[in-house]
Design a protein around this nucleic acid. Sequence first.
DNA 1: GATGAATGAGTATTCATTCAT
DNA 2: GATGAATGAATACTCATTCAT
Lengths: 223, 223, 223, 223
Amino acid sequence: MTHRSLTPSPLSTAPVRQRRKDARPQELLDAALALFVEKGFAATRSEEIAARAGVAKGTLYRYYPSKDELFKAMVRENLSVHIAESAAQAAQYEGAIAELLTQMMRAWWAKVGHGNAGVVCTLMMLEARHFPELARFYVDEVITPSKTLIGGLVERGIRSGEFRQVPLEATVHMLIAPMMHMLLHDHSFGDLDGCGQTMSPEDLLDAQLALLLHGLLAVPQGT
Amino acid sequence: MTHRSLTPSPLSTAPVRQRRKDARPQELLDAALALFVEKGFAATRSEEIAARAGVAKGTLYRYYPSKDELFKAMVRENLSVHIAESAAQAAQYEGAIAELLTQMMRAWWAKVGHGNAGVVCTLMMLEARHFPELARFYVDEVITPSKTLIGGLVERGIRSGEFRQVPLEATVHMLIAPMMHMLLHDHSFGDLDGCGQTMSPEDLLDAQLALLLHGLLAVPQGT
Amino acid sequence: MTHRSLTPSPLSTAPVRQRRKDARPQELLDAALALFVEKGFAATRSEEIAARAGVAKGTLYRYYPSKDELFKAMVRENLSVHIAESAAQAAQYEGAIAELLTQMMRAWWAKVGHGNAGVVCTLMMLEARHFPELARFYVDEVITPSKTLIGGLVERGIRSGEFRQVPLEATVHMLIAPMMHMLLHDHSFGDLDGCGQTMSPEDLLDAQLALLLHGLLAVPQGT
Amino acid sequence: MTHRSLTPSPLSTAPVRQRRKDARPQELLDAALALFVEKGFAATRSEEIAARAGVAKGTLYRYYPSKDELFKAMVRENLSVHIAESAAQAAQYEGAIAELLTQMMRAWWAKVGHGNAGVVCTLMMLEARHFPELARFYVDEVITPSKTLIGGLVERGIRSGEFRQVPLEATVHMLIAPMMHMLLHDHSFGDLDGCGQTMSPEDLLDAQLALLLHGLLAVPQGT
DNA sequence: GATGAATGAGTATTCATTCAT
DNA sequence: GATGAATGAATACTCATTCAT
């Protein structure tokens, strides 16, 4: 195990076809995500997905046995990353809870709001009723852990005297809803004129959080 | 039960058939709304809508030229009521802004959260990308007026010194997002176990609002 | 029940569309039978069936929910007649068993060999493995009753001393097999040159039966 | 288990791969036969055949250019053996025709009824219309020779005075039909309960033959 | 007007066949 | 030669929409 120089570098030796084959699932998933976001699940034809991934109709079915399964795979794939990172975040942060929450929200938005995870959350909300099984998974793996994580932080803040004696559930909702709403609003109406916020999402989020924290803190800071 | 009078029931002046005919559009719209909520637009077959409204497939097309138009009509119909009432509310309320906002939110939820308007808002978010024209209408007639209305109230509160010098846009978002999020979340995951809030929507809303107002008020009340 | 003159003659009053609608199932069944015989079940496209019945693809599915169900319906439809008549035959015949058997076979061939029932029997043999459920039905409703009927007659012949003490099962087989074989052989190879019998099916059947009866009779007649 | 010799197993002189390669065609043909019998030609996927033969999908096409050709090859292969042996049998048997026929039938059933040839005959009947060219071959190489052979024997029996003056064609039919019918019937309905004969096929065949011969013999033996 | 039979464009999915590796 | 990834023609089935009754 000391050296593996006998194994040729996979980058150079793998035949083109093999390399493409390995990349296929991700390419299909990406194509699917883009089109599901663009047109919705029902209105996206499986052939379109294949075409966007640069393959023929039949090829898609070599990797995913149905459009439904493709959707599920896409959600799982794009969510699993998010889930793992979320779990990591819970442990690694330290310091004042207000600061912690602000940083977490900013970090989440930076990663999720821009990347795939955000769109996947949006899609999940949109299509949850068609995929109850997947919705269950999403609730168990994403929603509940997130609430637990945030709820735990709020509780810590209350116990440490940093926060007022606020109702937990409502507070958690108030921390989550603004971001989710921005995501959904942007998905549904973002393309229309006159809907864009004058502030950037990041600034808006900061301001919203500041507002809420002002209501949370036992000793409000600043004005 | 001995004999059936040949004359129509004394309750009606118009013949039964006429009465039903006049009610048709609304019955179709109601049926459509229920099914669109239940299964989504794409997954709802027009025959189902007709059946639920108690008419034949062809009859639906006498009233609405296509499934798309039916959807649009349904949204407009259910929204127009809401819009008119919302506008009225803006003028009729008086007193402290914090109180006013609380009452408005409660009233909105009582009317919208439970009734048709709420699910129509949900449907609008879900299907907005399929109906850009309708989305435009919704933005112009519902979202923008609502923001203007709430924004105006917040501004009034700031000017009167009741509220701190808070950023307007972010505050409006914070007032709207929790309710919308509750609506969407309930639609998408409400049927799953372990997703229900422990608090009633009304209490949750109250708590959320209290939290936010605490952050808004120049001189916080209570704790 | 004495007279029904108040009911208008259905022939004259039913609208054309209605009349056609009533005839559709049979038209589709006939078209299906012809094509299944011609090309086999798997090789027959449902659109072809519809076309031959003079309707569009979708119309077929108004009457039969799938190609499989269409096949089943076709078998049942064409067999039920046969079954009923077979049952009737069992009771109505009288006289010497040898004579009776001869007449029954001739009658069966006249009706079945030429008409739909014969081809349906052939199709049943060909496709039985794809339709186990239907095969079960066929065995229970056609094969077993036929064997019971014929077996009963042979038994009667033995008891009355008309026939020798022959083994029942083998004798029944010998009475059935020639006809079935002719049917199948004709279906599979009838279109090829050099396969046609020099005798007519009727004469061939007569000769075969005579041969067998000669072996059955305790006191053979003629040479 | 301590070490694996680098040299090939002493049992083989040719390398394992070579041995397998030479056996491929037969393995593919066997796999095809089994699956065609099991599920029919149309319902059998070429990949299944390859898998059952232990090779990859593409490999099948190195040996047979299409599924159709594979079917034809399979039939020809399994029939050619039968044809040669049948011809041989005709010449080698001697003695009383009745005895000869009995022995031939028994031999045919022993070889054909159990082995591949029998199911191939069944498949031929099932798929004849899809493979007219093959049907032609089958008629010319199997059916006609068989009829000629049997017909010749019957004729011999008549000329020698062993048999009555029976009609040739009908008699040949009566000798062939029972066996063919047993084959077909077993293929189509054999898996269903209540369809199995109480007698073994061999006994049934014997009894049928005895019955027929009793009708054929100028001087019946036994009862 | 109301009906529901008829239509046929549209789509997911399968599978024989090819061919780069 | 062997492989199995890729292909795309073929096909069962759906459902919005029409229109004769």
